[in-house]
Amino acid sequence: MHDPQLVAERLLRASAASAGVDARIDWDASFEEGAWFMPPEWVSLYGTPLWQSMDHTSRVELSRQEMAALASGGIWTELCLMQMLGRYMAGRDLIDARTRYALTEVGEETRHSLMFARLISAMRCRAYTPPGYVNHLFSLTNVVYGRIGTFAVTLLSEEVNDLVQREAMKDERVQPLVRQVCRVHVTEEARHVSFARTELTHAMRTASAANVRVQRELVGVTAFVFMAHRMPATVYRAVGLDPAAARQQALANPHYREILRRSGHKAVTFLTEIGLISPRQRHWWRRAGLAP
């Protein structure tokens, strides 16, 4: 197992070397007529009967709304992660490398949230927020996540959205501004994933069996709730589609379901390997669409 202190020190150096990379985003760039806001293959309705009935302009508009929804979800999850990282730091030596990297990560997550908010505004979209009960549920449960839950949820939220951003940033069909934002986020989130994996592995090896059992269930439920609201039905209303019918086709769409499984593969494999997903929790991950 990698030494958590050494990993944190390496990540601190990497963060210092890349500081200010988001300042190079060209926010004044014009959007290209007819260009996508994410690869079309990643749009939830791709390949469905509804998709076939839409013209190119409507399909591009749906990609714009779905990118806004993903960016909005990114802001909300970053806010949740910052709260959990604050709890992690509160019980630690405030100047050791792991605490200093957690502080660095909070700073980066703040910049990412601002970056996503600016992107949503530039795209002239609304922000999509989760239902009120999800906010209430998090406020009730975040105190019991502990180190295992904190870094498992970090890993889940970062890895599940990583693949679509990696695809978008190298796809020349996608708007240049979206590609720039995705490139910055992917680069910095790779460090957050490395930190989360190291901390989570260490936490699992030192946790009590009772705590592991609780965290397995809590993280599984979190994955299910997180994915259930990843793409709100209101994105379909924004492009003139019936929300209920469109959501039904998206959820039944075999292409979209396969994309979600691919997005979750790395996180699910790792969490299974370290013992945070056992056969008893597998059903949560299947219901979330992240595991076969």
Rank of each mutant, 00 (worst) to 15 (best):
A71G: 02
D93V: 00
Y101F: 15
L81Y: 04
L103V: 10
T77L: 12
G73D: 02
T104H: 09
Q83D: 15
L70G: 09
R87F: 02
R87E: 11
T99I: 08
R92C: 10
Y88R: 02
Y88P: 00
A69I: 08
G73V: 06
Y101V: 00
G91W: 05
M89H: 00
Q83T: 07
E105F: 10
E78W: 04
T104C: 12
Y88C: 02
A69T: 06
A69N: 06
E105D: 13
I75F: 02
A90K: 05
I75R: 09
R100C: 12
I95M: 10
I95F: 12
T99M: 10
G73H: 12
L103D: 07
R92H: 12
S72G: 14
G74C: 07
Y101R: 03
Y101C: 03
R100I: 10
I95V: 14
R92L: 08
Y101N: 07
L103R: 09
L81K: 03
G86C: 04
G91E: 12
D96A: 05
L70M: 12
G73R: 13
M89C: 13
A69F: 07
L70Y: 08
L81F: 11
C80F: 09
A69H: 05
A69D: 07
E105S: 05
R87Q: 13
M84L: 15
S72I: 02
M84R: 13
L103W: 06
Q83M: 13
L79A: 12
R87Y: 08
A102K: 02
I95G: 03
R100W: 03
I95A: 07
D96Q: 06
R92D: 08
L81E: 08
W76R: 08
M82G: 09
G73N: 13
L70K: 02
I75P: 00
A102R: 00
A97S: 14
M89T: 11
R92T: 04
M82H: 00
D93N: 15
L94C: 05
A71C: 13
R98K: 14
I75A: 00
D96N: 15
D93H: 04
Q83C: 09
L81T: 10
Y101I: 01
L94R: 13
L79T: 06
R92V: 04
T99P: 09
L85I: 15
E105W: 07
G73S: 10
I95N: 10
M82D: 05
E105K: 03
R98D: 08
E78A: 13
C80Q: 14
T104G: 15
W76C: 07
T104S: 15
I95T: 13
Y101S: 01
